[in-house]
Measured scan of single mutants.
Amino acid sequence: MDVFMKGLSKAKEGVVAAAEKTKQGVAEAAGKTKEGVLYVGSKTKEGVVHGVATVAEKTKEQVTNVGGAVVTGVTAVAQKTVEGAGSIAAATGFVKKDQLGKNEEGAPQEGILEDMPVDPDNEAYEMPSEEGYQDYEPEA
Rank of each mutant, 00 (worst) to 15 (best):
Q62Y: 06
Q24H: 05
E126S: 06
E104P: 10
G86S: 12
D115M: 11
A53N: 07
V49R: 04
A30R: 08
E35A: 06
N122V: 05
T54H: 13
G68F: 03
G41Y: 12
G7L: 08
V77L: 11
G25L: 10
P120G: 10
E105L: 04
P117C: 10
E104H: 09
A89Y: 06
K6V: 06
E114M: 02
A90I: 15
V71F: 12
A56M: 05
G51T: 05
E123N: 14
K60T: 03
V71M: 04
G73Q: 14
D135N: 10
Q134I: 01
S9Y: 04
V70H: 03
P108H: 06
D115S: 07
A140G: 06
V16S: 15
V70D: 04
T22E: 00
K58W: 12
L38A: 11
L8D: 00
E83I: 02
D121A: 11
T22C: 04
D121H: 12
A78I: 10
D98F: 14
E131D: 14
E13G: 11
N122M: 08
M5F: 09
P108V: 10
V3K: 01
K97D: 15
F4P: 00
Q24T: 05
A56T: 13
Q24R: 10
Y125R: 09
T44P: 04
T44H: 03
N65I: 04
A30T: 10
A56C: 11
K21R: 11
E110G: 10
T72P: 11
V16N: 12
A11P: 00
A85T: 09
G68Q: 05
G67L: 14
H50M: 13
E137F: 14
K34P: 00
V118P: 07
E13F: 10
G7C: 11
E130K: 14
G14H: 13
V82E: 05
E13R: 02
D135F: 09
E126L: 07
N122R: 13
T44D: 00
G111Q: 13
V16I: 11
P117D: 04
K32F: 13
A53Q: 02
E110W: 10
G132P: 02
A85S: 12
Y136T: 03
V49Y: 04
S9C: 04
E126Y: 12
A76K: 12
G25E: 09
T59C: 05
G73H: 08
V3T: 00
S9W: 09
H50F: 06
I88G: 05
A140N: 12
A19R: 02
V15Y: 06
V3P: 00
V74P: 02
D115Y: 08
E123H: 08
E137T: 09
A140F: 01
K97I: 14
Q62P: 05
K45P: 06
Q109S: 12
P117L: 10
A107K: 09
E20M: 08
E123D: 12
T54W: 13
V74I: 06
L113A: 09
V74A: 08
V95C: 15
D2Y: 04
N122F: 07
E46Y: 02
G41K: 03
G86R: 07
E61I: 09
K6M: 14
G93W: 13
E83S: 05
P120E: 08
S42E: 04
G14D: 06
A69I: 11
E114A: 09
Y133E: 03
E114S: 02
K43P: 00
V95P: 02
E126A: 07
T75Q: 06
K6L: 15
K10T: 11
V26C: 15
Y125L: 14
L100Y: 02
G47H: 04
P138I: 09
A78H: 15
V63R: 07
Q99P: 03
E28R: 03
V15L: 13
P117W: 15
K97L: 05
S42Y: 12
Y133K: 04
S42R: 01
G132W: 08
A89I: 13
V66R: 07
P108A: 13
G132V: 10
T33H: 03
E123C: 06
V55D: 01
E57A: 07
E13C: 13
V82Y: 10
K58M: 10
G31V: 01
K6R: 12
E126C: 14
Q24A: 08
A107L: 14
E35D: 13
E46I: 14
A89H: 07
G93E: 05
K10F: 10
L113T: 09
E126H: 14
E13N: 15
E110T: 03
D119E: 07
K60M: 02
A56K: 02
G51M: 10
G73F: 15
A17V: 08
T59F: 14
T44M: 08
T75W: 14
G7V: 10
K21F: 12
A124N: 10
G36F: 06
G101H: 04
Q79A: 11
G25R: 08
V26H: 00
A19V: 05
T22H: 06
V52P: 01
D98M: 07
G73S: 12
G86A: 13
G25I: 12
V66C: 15
A85Q: 02
F94K: 14
Q24P: 00
L100M: 15
Q24W: 04
M1N: 00
T72W: 02
P120I: 08
V70P: 01
V37W: 14
F94Y: 11
P128T: 08
E57R: 05
T33N: 00
T59I: 03
E35I: 06
A27I: 13
T75A: 13
G93F: 02
V82H: 12
A29M: 15
G84D: 11
Y125G: 05
E57V: 13
I88K: 03
T75V: 10
K6Y: 05
E114D: 15
G47R: 09
A19D: 00
K32M: 10
T59E: 01
F4E: 00
F94H: 09
M1Y: 00
L38C: 03
Q99E: 11
D121F: 05
A124Q: 04
M1L: 00
V26A: 04
D2E: 01
F4G: 00
P108K: 12
T75P: 02
G36R: 09
P128K: 03
P108Q: 09
A11E: 00
A17L: 12
K12D: 00
T64P: 03
T92I: 04
G106Y: 14
P128V: 04
M5Q: 00
G51S: 07
G41N: 08
G47E: 03
T33F: 14
K45Q: 03
K32D: 00
E114P: 11
E126D: 07
T33E: 00
S42P: 02
A17Y: 04
E20H: 08
E83A: 03
G86V: 03
Q134Y: 07
Q109V: 07
K80N: 09
G73A: 10
T54E: 05
A53F: 02
E131A: 09
S9H: 05
A76V: 11
A17K: 05
A17N: 07
G106P: 10
S87G: 03
Q99V: 11
A91K: 08
A27F: 11
G93A: 15
G41M: 08
V74F: 05
A89R: 05
L100D: 01
K34N: 01
V77K: 03
T81A: 15
Q62I: 05
P120K: 04
G7T: 08
K23D: 00
A107S: 07
Q24I: 07
I112C: 06
G51W: 14
V95N: 11
V118F: 08
A76P: 01
I88L: 15
A29P: 00
A78N: 05
T81S: 07
A90D: 01
T54Y: 03
G101W: 05
I112L: 06
A53T: 08
F4R: 00
E139G: 04
D135I: 14
A11L: 11
G132F: 07
K21G: 00
D135R: 03
L8F: 02
A78F: 12
D2F: 12
P108S: 10
P108R: 13
M5L: 00
M5D: 00
P108N: 11
T22I: 04
N65Y: 02
G132Q: 15
G132A: 15
G73M: 06
M1F: 00
M1E: 00
D98T: 14
V3D: 02
V74R: 01
G47A: 13
G31N: 08
P128D: 15
E57T: 09
L113H: 07
G106A: 06
A11C: 06
V52E: 01
T81G: 07
E131K: 09
S9G: 11
D119G: 14
